[in-house]
Amino acid sequence: MKTNYLCRVEELKRLTDTIWLLELEASNIREAIKPGQFFHVKCDDGYLRRPFSVCDFKDGILKIAFEARGKGTKALSKVERGDNIDVLGPLGNGFDIGYDRICVVGGGIGVFPLLYLLNKSESLRKDAVLGFLCKDKVVLENEFANLCDNLVIACDDGSYGVRGFVTTALEKHLEEHRFDIVYTCGPEKMMKKVYEICKKHEIPCQVSLEERMGCGIGACLVCVCEVKKDKVLQNKRVCKDGPVMWANEVYYD
């Protein structure tokens, strides 16, 4: 049985016009939090919980980044220092991190769980290829740079970093460097393209999926997706069996 925790708001930082970084005093969380896991957060008494991946957890401070675009997340963007937030977790399965040379690929708000992955990884080489719509949407650049051997930022409109899609930047990066695994999180089309590129380069790939969730613990079956494992089609719950899965099982032929 997963535990509910009341965590006190330490700080709420605005990263862009719609993206926020919430810092919670969470020293009461005793369970180990794996990169890729998430917390089901009660945004307001009138709304369902919302799933948020862990952006960082260190010295008892839990960091969650989110985009305020619906009723629940907009309510969360109005909390104040000292407020108590009800969180359930940690939930789900995280990334496999026992590899020497890793590359993370994130798109937009999908970069958030990848920061904690880099922070916890003890890999010998850690690179990041991150994509955003434009310069104004770039977030956590310094934080990623401090954890990476090589950071590549791509903007669709060319206003910052490399011009073009993050997948184009990844293709070039993999032609110049070799990795044992690629981890990715972002829009569905982006992750599928990342997998196709990794498949061509014969590099294993893990994806962090996003689906609408109800309970967050696998009981309601709202977040079921179809995967193919050992040549057999199976239904998997993103909240419990994921959100991290092997890309070749999700994007099967």
Rank of each mutant, 00 (worst) to 15 (best):
residue 1 M to I: 10
residue 1 M to K: 10
residue 2 K to P: 09
residue 2 K to G: 01
residue 3 T to C: 05
residue 5 Y to P: 05
residue 6 L to K: 15
residue 7 C to F: 03
residue 12 L to V: 06
residue 13 K to L: 15
residue 14 R to A: 12
residue 14 R to C: 08
residue 17 D to S: 14
residue 18 T to F: 08
residue 21 L to E: 11
residue 23 E to Y: 13
residue 23 E to P: 01
residue 25 E to M: 03
residue 28 N to G: 04
residue 29 I to M: 12
residue 32 A to N: 13
residue 33 I to M: 03
residue 35 P to N: 05
residue 36 G to E: 00
residue 37 Q to E: 08
residue 38 F to E: 10
residue 38 F to Q: 08
residue 38 F to M: 08
residue 41 V to P: 03
residue 41 V to A: 05
residue 44 D to A: 14
residue 45 D to M: 12
residue 46 G to R: 10
residue 47 Y to R: 07
residue 47 Y to N: 11
residue 48 L to K: 13
residue 52 F to M: 11
residue 54 V to K: 02
residue 54 V to P: 05
residue 54 V to S: 03
residue 55 C to I: 09
residue 58 K to I: 13
residue 58 K to S: 13
residue 61 I to L: 07
residue 61 I to M: 01
residue 64 I to Q: 10
residue 68 A to T: 00
residue 70 G to Y: 11
residue 70 G to I: 08
residue 70 G to A: 13
residue 70 G to F: 08
residue 73 T to I: 07
residue 74 K to N: 09
residue 75 A to P: 05
residue 75 A to Q: 09
residue 75 A to Y: 04
residue 78 K to E: 13
residue 80 E to N: 14
residue 81 R to T: 15
residue 82 G to P: 08
residue 82 G to A: 04
residue 85 I to G: 01
residue 87 V to G: 00
residue 87 V to Q: 01
residue 89 G to N: 01
residue 90 P to R: 00
residue 92 G to F: 03
residue 94 G to K: 02
residue 95 F to T: 02
residue 95 F to V: 07
residue 95 F to R: 00
residue 102 I to K: 07
residue 103 C to N: 01
residue 103 C to L: 13
residue 104 V to S: 03
residue 104 V to M: 07
residue 107 G to H: 04
residue 112 F to R: 08
residue 112 F to M: 13
residue 113 P to K: 02
residue 113 P to E: 05
residue 115 L to T: 04
residue 117 L to F: 09
residue 119 N to T: 15
residue 127 D to K: 10
residue 128 A to C: 06
residue 128 A to L: 06
residue 130 L to E: 02
residue 130 L to T: 05
residue 135 K to G: 03
residue 142 N to P: 04
residue 147 L to G: 02
residue 151 L to N: 06
residue 153 I to M: 02
residue 153 I to Y: 01
residue 155 C to R: 00
residue 158 G to E: 00
residue 159 S to G: 08
residue 159 S to Y: 05
residue 168 T to Q: 13
residue 168 T to I: 10
residue 168 T to E: 14
residue 171 E to K: 15
residue 171 E to Y: 13
residue 172 K to Y: 00
residue 172 K to Q: 08
residue 173 H to I: 08
residue 174 L to I: 12
residue 176 E to T: 12
residue 178 R to K: 15
residue 179 F to S: 06
residue 179 F to K: 11
residue 180 D to T: 10
residue 180 D to F: 09
residue 183 Y to N: 05
residue 186 G to V: 06
residue 188 E to D: 13
residue 192 K to W: 07
residue 193 K to V: 12
residue 193 K to G: 01
residue 195 Y to R: 00
residue 200 K to G: 09
residue 202 E to Y: 11
residue 204 P to N: 06
residue 209 L to M: 15
residue 211 E to G: 07
residue 211 E to Y: 09
residue 211 E to D: 05
residue 212 R to A: 12
residue 216 G to W: 06
residue 216 G to N: 06
residue 217 I to H: 06
residue 219 A to E: 14
residue 220 C to H: 07
residue 222 V to T: 15
residue 222 V to R: 11
residue 224 V to G: 00
residue 224 V to N: 09
residue 224 V to A: 09
residue 226 E to I: 14
residue 227 V to C: 10
residue 233 L to Q: 08
residue 235 N to V: 04
residue 237 R to Y: 14
residue 237 R to A: 08
residue 237 R to P: 00
residue 238 V to L: 01
residue 239 C to Q: 02
residue 240 K to F: 10
residue 244 V to Y: 03
residue 244 V to C: 07
residue 245 M to E: 08
residue 249 E to V: 07
residue 251 Y to T: 09
